[in-house]
Design a protein around this nucleic acid. Sequence first.
DNA 1: AATCGGCTCAACCGCTATTGT
DNA 2: GACAATAGCGGTTGAGCCGAT
Length: 234
Amino acid sequence: MGRSPYCDSSGLKKGPWTPEEDHKLLAYIHQHGHGSWRALPSKAGLERCGKSCRLRWTNYLRPDIKRGKFSLQEEQAIEQLHALLGNRWSAIATHLPKRTDNEIKNYWNTHLKKKLIKMGIDPITHKPMKNNNEEMKVKSNMNNSTLSHMAQWETARLEAEERLARQHKIQPIPSSSSEGRVESPTTSSTATENCQHLAGESGVADDLPSSGSGSAESKNYGWPDTILDEFLRF
DNA sequence: AATCGGCTCAACCGCTATTGT
DNA sequence: GACAATAGCGGTTGAGCCGAT
């Protein structure tokens, strides 16, 4: 499997995009669609590599992007989804309409991770940190419902994993879901609904997507939808 | 006013996955 | 099946901003 170089360093521009470049990219995609990203820059008259164009489009220029501050609901949804999916930003992004994986990743790294650490929660495991001082802080700062809620999430995750493992021993997963990258808008929306249900019960994430978040590209990387569903059904 | 340090976020880089031949 | 091309993901970087000193 040959790896393509990021961008040939043959005079291609790097760094921040100018409004003129944005305009060229927008105009081209609006007229022709992006097609092959590799071929796009020359067709659009841009001295950028295709990868750079794709990134600019998906992270900034796409019309269905919501920019600006994250709401409390979005914040809580990210926390819950991260507890469930880990650093699978694109998978998390499919459950947060109009937010890009890059934006969510940035927000996690700059805000949420610190917030959890401050609360004495390990941002990786989403469990209270073992450190005594931190644990004391957790005990005094976190309310019981938050703790029990997190424990429920973790328990449910483990149960779902176990159940799925058992199931797979009996019946192998169909090829579509065993390939790691799963495209299934149906189950995605089910998961979303369940997430909404869960969020509703715990009083968070009221504005989670009610549809498949407009994601024709909706994928649950790594986590098969069955696990996600199981977990969110909890 | 200068400078220092922390923070944010757009963009880059390197890798894997997928698709086509 | 092997290989190449392309797409997409997640980690990291660095320029710019802003508040503190």
